[in-house]
Amino acid sequence: MKKRGIVIAETEELTIGYASRRRSIRVMEHLSVSAGSGELVALIGRNGAGKSTLLRTLVSLQSAVGGKIRLHGRDLHSIGSTMLPRIVSFTSTEPVAERNISVRNAVSLGRFPYTNWIGTMTNADREAVDHALEDTGMLTLAGRRLDSISDGERQRTLIARSLAQDTELLVMDEPTAFLDLPSRYGIVSLLRKLTREKGKCVIYSTHDLDTALNEADRIWLMDGECIIEGAPEDLILSGTIARAFESPLLSFSSKEGTFSFVRGRRKGIALEGDAPALSLTEKALGRCGYAVDQQASVRVKVQTGPEGWRWTLAEGSETRSFSTLYELMVHLPEE
């Protein structure tokens, strides 16, 4: 593991937005955050908070309205347009224009800043491409076309392309969007691996709070007027996460670090039985408007037997038994 903490990217009193000759629209002001080598930084925030704008400003796709950005301690303005692509790579949500391109060719384009006027690949370039393909697990699919692989594999290809560009800072706009759960975890754990094993600094935006809070070293949280940074747990402890994302329908558990639906007024139900069915039963009962209360008149008992799990519902003298939770829920007493 390489040492962590050399500052790779930092902003100072940055104002992001769109400036034209007549007027400027400020999306957010006074942004002062930083990211270090070997760090996985997750940028989170509600829709429209300005995540993409911040990332695009960081990689100089749009200019800052005010303030400073420093990459490797150098002011972004002082880095020339031939040097910048060797310092930072960017993966956007823009669809690939030519879906017939092969994985290897797409990754090879990451070598763009290093090749000559016609794009001739030297041995060193080819080696970099091979390494990038290998690190992302795409080597066996290198000959496939982009429209013949899965969404997750396509995202891996784009990450490989970023790796081939050989920059210490990798900026990615929503690399896990539109991916299923295993692919999402796959991508984030790949990004994590890159920070740990290669010492890369990865800044990525995401709506996937779960993985971000579990895997990121640092969170940049865009919250209406300001940006707050810190380790995920710091932000949970200070209540920042809860404030930013809680709504009348959603509550955040600081203990678990997870979100759940807010349930309305609930009836009591007594519950006993064996794990792990016990907690799952509690969850299912919660959805039906019941909260566990051992003093309640309605009682549910869950036990495991020779035929699997069984649930017994007791209400007064009446007792019924079910083999699935679904049946139990259907037969719960109405209000």
């Binding site: 796709l61 956007s92 823009e94 690939v96 224009a97 030519e98 384009l109 990451g110």
Partner: peptide
């Protein structure tokens, strides 16, 4: 060739 990957990519690798 860079434009095959889209305009944003082209700009970030230094295409004017």
């Amino acid at each position: 060739n860079a434009m095959l990957m889209g305009e944003t990519f082209s700009r970030t690798v230094g295409v004017r």
